[in-house]
């Protein structure tokens, strides 16, 4: 474990806490893409299949359970909670995310980390996480005004993978000394997708203006 990876995991956890807080305190999920949340549930379920077969550390097990539990809880709130589900902007959340699932699955079959079921699914989860934010970014572009918590959620979610890029550089030089093409290219793509959001987020923060993405 290195400081970049720990910071990355804590940032990731914080992003989820911020989203849960927003939904629970405001009883609203306006501006949040249910499709992105569904993709993240899929990412965690297909990535953590080794939860009960391979033990790394208490931290690893605990965090996997927290990520699965919180992402399912957010999905449940947005899909089934009687008050929250009324605030879901269904018409704005129009990204065809099933294409992302199919595309990433085909990619994982063609370029898997290893030709075993768990490794194909692990690769699928890496590819899927790289594009999982797309429905959310599209929804933000359609939203007139983006509330602070939603902006912070997306920023933290993007920042965590950027910290993971630093973690991978660190691990390359200190222990692995080999290129891990699949997670590293996926992680670069994932972080690059946030580039323009980061730009507008930092601008709005510096100018103390409301966050607005160009359509």
């Amino acid at each position: 474990m290195n400081v970049f990876r720990l910071a990355g995991d804590m940032t990731h956890l914080l992003s989820i806490v911020v989203l849960l807080l927003k939904i629970r305190t405001t009883k609203s999920c306006a501006g949040i893409s249910l499709k992105t949340q569904e993709l993240y549930v899929l990412v965690f379920l297909t990535r953590y299949l080794d939860l009960f077969t391979r033990y790394f550390s208490v931290y690893n097990v605990l965090m996997k359970l927290i990520f699965i539990g919180t992402s399912v809880a957010i999905f449940w709130y947005m899909r089934y909670h009687k008050v929250v589900k009324q605030t879901y902007s269904k018409d704005l959340d129009s990204f065809r995310h099933y294409h992302l699932i199919l595309g990433c699955f085909l990619m994982a079959l063609l370029i898997p980390f290893d030709f075993s079921v768990t490794e194909v699914l692990w690769t699928f989860s890496i590819y899927l996480e790289a594009v999982a934010i797309l429905p959310q970014l599209v929804l933000l572009q359609k939203s007139r005004n983006i509330d602070n918590l939603t902006g912070n959620y997306v920023f933290l979610l993007g920042a965590y993978r950027a910290l993971y890029l630093l973690n991978w550089i660190y691990r390359f030089f200190t222990e692995i000394h080999k290129i891990r093409w699949i997670p590293w290219i996926s992680g670069l793509v994932q972080t690059a997708l946030y580039a323009d959001f980061f730009y507008y987020y930092i601008q709005s923060w510096r100018k103390h203006e409301e966050l607005k993405l160009p359509a």
């Binding site: 995991d9 391979r54 965090m63 691990r171 080999k178």
Partner: peptide, 10 residues
């Protein structure tokens, strides 16, 4: 899987 295959990451 050999060590350092990043499966120890979240």
């Amino acid at each position: 899987l050999p060590e350092g295959e990043l499966h120890d990451e979240l």
